[in-house]
Every structure is written in C-alpha cells, then in structure tokens.
Design a binder for these strands. Structure first.
Lengths: 105, 105
DNA sequence: ATGTACTGCAACCATATGGTTGCACCACAT
DNA sequence: ATGTGGTGCAACCATATGGTTGCAGTACAT
C-alpha cells in the first residue's frame, strides 16, 4: 500500500455526513434507505456517500434479498491509523533531532 | 477533542498536493516560496494549502526575517492516529461480536 | 396480478475547491 | 536610493462535490 491508496481514505473521512453514516452503521448494518430514515439527507445522497466509503474500503455491501446492506470495516481504519502513527513518529523524530542540534550550539 | 475537530484534519489530509507539501516539509522547514520551487504549483496555491494545513493543526508557521517558514507537526498526526485506532477497534469488536452470535445459532 | 418498497440512473443546481494571474506592499542588501 | 525577493490580497476560472428531484426497473408480499 502506497500513500496513493491512503489519500482516498482521508478524503472519505473528511466529511461530516460520511461520519454520521459510519456512526449509524456502527450501530448495525443498514441499507441506504434505512439510513435515509435516520439522517437528514436523501437516500440518493447517502448512496453517493456509501459509494465513496466503499471505494475507500471503509464499508462493504451485502445483498440481503432485494436490499443492499452496508457494513462498516474497522480493519481499514485501524490499518490507516497504524500508517498515520508511523508517519507522525518520523516527523516527531526529525523535530526532536533538530531540537537536539539546536541545543548543542 | 470531539470528532468535529477531527474532520478538518482528514479533509486536509485528503489531497495529494498537500501530502507533497507535508513530505517536502518533512525534509526540513520551508517557506511557501521555497516550496513553490520544488512543487509543480504556484506559490499562491501552496499558500492556500498551508493555510488549510495550519487550520487543521498539522503545520505551524515561524517568522524568520521577512520570510514565513512552515514546520510540520507530527504530534497532531499521532493524536489523530490514536483516535482512529480506537474507533477502528470499536467497530472491529462489534463485528467480532456479531460473528460470535452468528456462530452460536 | 398488483401494489409496495427498495435500488439504480440521470439531470440538474449551488457552492466549495484547487488552481491561476496580477498587483501592491514590505524588508533587506547593495 | 534602488532593486530583489519574499508576503498578502483579490479577482477569476474550471471542475469537483454534496445535495436535490424525478423516473425507471425489480423483487417481494398479498
């Protein structure tokens, strides 16, 4: 996995409505129509958001009869968190190194 | 910190150019003009991106004479990673619980 | 067989976003 | 005093984004 696959994940997470959807799915799997019942946007808007989330690998869809249920995938989030962590650490290390050098002057 | 402060961070990280800027800053502090030298966009575009990054708490600016240098802040990234991790874990736990219930049937 | 409820597609709209150019301004060095 | 190199602001442009409405298709229950 390169950062190129990481960016869409962040882009997907950079929207309030999408977090509402994820939070709702956190309560249990649901279809776009069902979500439209508890959120202040139309089913079609939700469907678009779900497409973005699925593209980012944050949710997966399961056909149940005539409805399409969505399930949140915590693994992708954890994976992303792990990579963020390591990047953050690198930067912190660099800053610490600079500080050390500055103190040696 | 609530998720409302988290979303802008993700939005900021959801752009390739911004990652290029962060990566460049990872090599050392730099001004918008300096960054414009190594990236394929104008200084003004970079200035806008830096404003977004600063708003998200991912960089800070330091005046050095007549120039404004930017420094990357790894801490915010680590903090974000930690919070992502815990959310991801919650979801994974829920999925695991569902799996267990399904197996008991 | 027919109505109901869900999905899928398309058109459309307003605003946000990423980018540009141009210009004014200010600090520093010569 | 003057030129150079940096910042800041504003206008502008094209496209992406988040949202809507409307309609067609399809599966299920009665």
């Amino acid at each position: 996995m390169t950062t190129s696959t990481l960016v869409p994940v962040f882009a997907a997470l950079g929207d309030e409505t999408r977090w509402s959807i994820l939070a709702a799915l956190g309560e249990g799997d649901a279809s776009a129509s069902a979500l439209a019942g508890s959120l202040p946007v139309t089913r079609q808007a939700i469907a678009k958001h779900l497409a973005v989330l699925q593209e980012a690998g944050l949710v997966e869809s399961i056909r149940v009869g005539r409805e399409l249920r969505y399930r949140v995938l915590g693994a992708q989030l954890s994976e992303t968190a792990r990579r963020l962590e390591s990047i953050g650490n690198e930067w912190d290390l660099r800053l610490a190194a600079i500080k050390r050098i500055a103190e040696e002057l």
